[in-house]
Design a protein around this nucleic acid. Structure first.
Lengths: 120, 120
DNA sequence: GCCTTATTCAACTATTTGGTTGAATATGAC
DNA sequence: GTCATATTCAACCAAATAGTTGAATAAGGC
């Protein structure tokens, strides 16, 4: 499990770590600030941040005795790129086809469902 | 780690499982067909498929003695939705800003870098 | 130097994960 | 029914993970 994408997905597979990323998407924060809302030891949060850092999702810089954490978007962009291969499954997808078919052949007694609006 | 998104990310955090999904993005396949290219026991591949199934990424139907596996895009769509909160970090992102700045103020002696084309 | 604050390190534990092997189950062919 | 094929189950093992606690390190205030 040494490849970058696996490390990224593994890092994201934890609600605490995703919450940390969400905080960091708003503002840069120190480890202590990040840890405060969590019902868990500071060491545990520090370890979660290490996981995020190893995955390249967070970088840390020193400011006096504080380690200031910052979101690094690159691995997320790579996840987005990986998803590209699967977008066709929901972008003009089979279940959208099903909607089209249902629209063309409404089941007796039921009104034809409205076409969902394509987003963007 | 019981929430859906965590299960999805955990399922994706393994290159074997991502390779299985890639296969299934081309065509529906049985467990044995899926397992053939991998240097690992059939039982191991079967377990990987169970992980994908628990995450909702794959569904299986019976056809005689074959379990036919099919890609289910919904959890991937949810990953895509989760990414939305972070897209602004690379969609007109800071490093693009840096490119703009470098273009406006080319470092002495170096040609101004060409602007990268925005994709789509 | 000494105290306080911020953070990490080290050691330990419990649980999960990814793999193995061999036995069990299910289906179709004969 | 018997045989062969496809797949899973069960038991096991090694390594990784998520948490704990207590000691160690680093920086600033005095």
């Amino acid at each position: 499990m040494t490849d970058a994408l696996s490390q990224t997905f593994a890092a994201l597979a934890d609600p605490t770590r995703r919450a940390l990323l969400a905080r960091l998407s708003k503002r840069v924060e120190s480890v202590g600030e990040l840890a405060r809302p969590f019902d868990m030891s500071l060491a545990a949060v520090s370890k979660h941040l290490q996981v995020l850092e190893r995955a390249g999702l967070v970088s840390r810089s020193k400011d006096a005795q504080w380690r200031v954490c910052q979101l690094e978007p690159k691995p997320l962009r790579e996840v987005d790129g990986w998803l590209d291969a699967y977008r066709r499954f929901w972008d003009r997808s089979l279940d959208e086809m099903a909607v089209v078919i249902a629209t063309l052949h409404p089941p007796a007694g039921k009104p034809a469902p409205k076409r969902k609006k394509r987003k963007s």
